[in-house]
Design a binder for these strands. Structure first.
Length: 142
DNA sequence: CTTCTAACA
DNA sequence: TGTTAGTA
């Protein structure tokens, strides 16, 4: 069973530790990137694994990935190759892969087509990420 | 003072 | 997403 004395952090700490805004952290929770436990007073408490997941997602976002892509990767339990290089290999995501999940966040947008094969999924995610990065470069060159 | 939810510039 | 209101 889990460490009953595992350190937990308030959202303010999570913010300082990840550089994300509390708004983002809370929103990402609605997409179930992380599901912090709550205190009796309903305040969120983040585990180190939660912090790691948030920091991981933050990095991917900076690299141009969409939250949906990140969520899909997390569910496939397969961080992108180049992400593994600079990350400590073992992410302790507590989110189990949901059978039949499309990877699209619940209630956010119409489900996207499912790519059963993990390699193809990652390939498609990377392709779209590259496209968005290119668009951004063209757009910022004014 | 910090965090929470809900709502809207 | 930012931000703010009104709480706990």
């Amino acid at each position: 069973m889990k460490n009953r004395h595992e350190p937990l952090f308030a959202i303010g700490v999570a913010r300082r530790l990840t550089g994300l805004t509390e708004r983002q952290i809370r929103y990402w929770e609605t997409q179930q990137l992380v599901v912090p436990v709550r205190t009796p007073g309903n305040h969120r408490l983040y585990s180190q694994a939660d912090i790691d997941a948030l920091a991981w997602a933050a990095r991917l976002r900076r690299r141009g990935y969409r939250l949906w892509d990140i969520l899909a990767m997390q569910r496939e339990q397969t961080p992108a190759p180049h992400v593994r290089q600079d990350s400590d290999a073992h992410f302790r995501f507590r989110r189990p892969a949901v059978a039949g999940s499309t990877g699209a966040p619940t209630g956010s947008r119409a489900d996207r087509p499912v790519t059963q094969d993990r390699a193809k999924l990652l390939e498609e995610i990377e392709r779209r990420r590259a496209e968005r990065s290119d668009e951004r470069r063209e757009k910022d060159r004014d």
